[in-house]
Design a binder for these strands. Structure first.
Lengths: 147, 147
DNA sequence: TCATGATATTAGAATACATCTAAAAATGGA
DNA sequence: TCCATTTTTAGATGTATTCTAATATCATGA
């Protein structure tokens, strides 16, 4: 399902960001980025917080939120909002999402050129990005339903 | 920009819903639906609350949230989540959205057949709906920036 | 290496949005 | 009109995020 050439957030990208902006490299920032870089489940802020605290107990929520916001601001992480929950997506390759209405799972869907070429009438606004969200029942939940 | 044939939530639809489910018709429910039916700005729950309170002072937030959730459950209203804010959309015609990154404005974008025919590889999941979100700078904000 | 100044982290308070609760009020059918 | 049921209400509670200000850490230059 996933190819290996996907562009992803890496610890190296954090180092670049920190240098660019005159920020400081900290173990917390590194741990948060490593957590994001290692997962494909689009974790929530709380999931990142808990993951980081396994390795760095005493990491505060404020630091997790600050770092996530820093990464979003730098466009190294995208945000997905669904059912009142924000999820963080470190996949930098243009792509879309499938969200399961039953279990809430969010999965990346490869973008195709065909769909990127939009014919939508946007009423004179400057369009900078396009995001498709597919909703439905994931293969697993569908199986559970029909047994 | 908007055609007149758009399918929209109407007070009549509320009446039908209430009859269908054995619920009761109340002035609060009617006022909330009238507020939604009359607007194209995709109001937040708080905006609905304030609008309804202009005509019905003492309407509680709980009632507004209950009614909005009832309408969402009945699929008479759709929800748009952006920047941590939920907005309510009474346009029932399949359509997409443009969101201005500067002012936060959400505008409906007509759906075209061409785009509905998706060629996306969805990895064996059952896709039930497709929602496109375009982001950028709206005509007004673009003008302000460039003067 | 160390001192220095700037930046980051922390715990807990504050805020914002949404839901829950239980008592009072309103609805609509008999 | 009466009555059972549903709805509404104000305020409490819950949940996610941001703010605060004191403390700790980082990285530069001496």
């Amino acid at each position: 399902m996933y190819s290996n050439i996907m562009i992803r957030l890496t610890p190296q990208k954090l180092t670049e960001l920190v240098a660019e902006r005159g920020l400081k490299m900290t173990p917390q920032r590194r741990a948060i980025v490593e957590c994001l870089a290692a997962t494909r489940v689009h974790p929530t802020a709380d999931e990142v917080f808990m993951d980081v605290n396994r390795r760095f107990p005493m990491t505060s929520r404020a630091t997790v939120y600050n770092t996530l916001n820093l990464l979003i601001d730098a466009e190294l992480v995208n945000i997905i909002e669904e059912s009142g929950v924000k999820r963080f997506d470190p996949n930098l390759e243009p792509h879309h999402h499938f969200i399961c209405s039953t279990c809430g799972m969010v999965e990346d869907v490869e973008a195709t050129d065909r769909l990127e070429t939009t014919m939508l009438n946007t009423g004179g606004h400057q369009v900078e990005s396009m995001q498709i969200t597919l909703r439905g029942t994931c293969a697993l939940c569908f199986e559970v339903k029909n047994d």
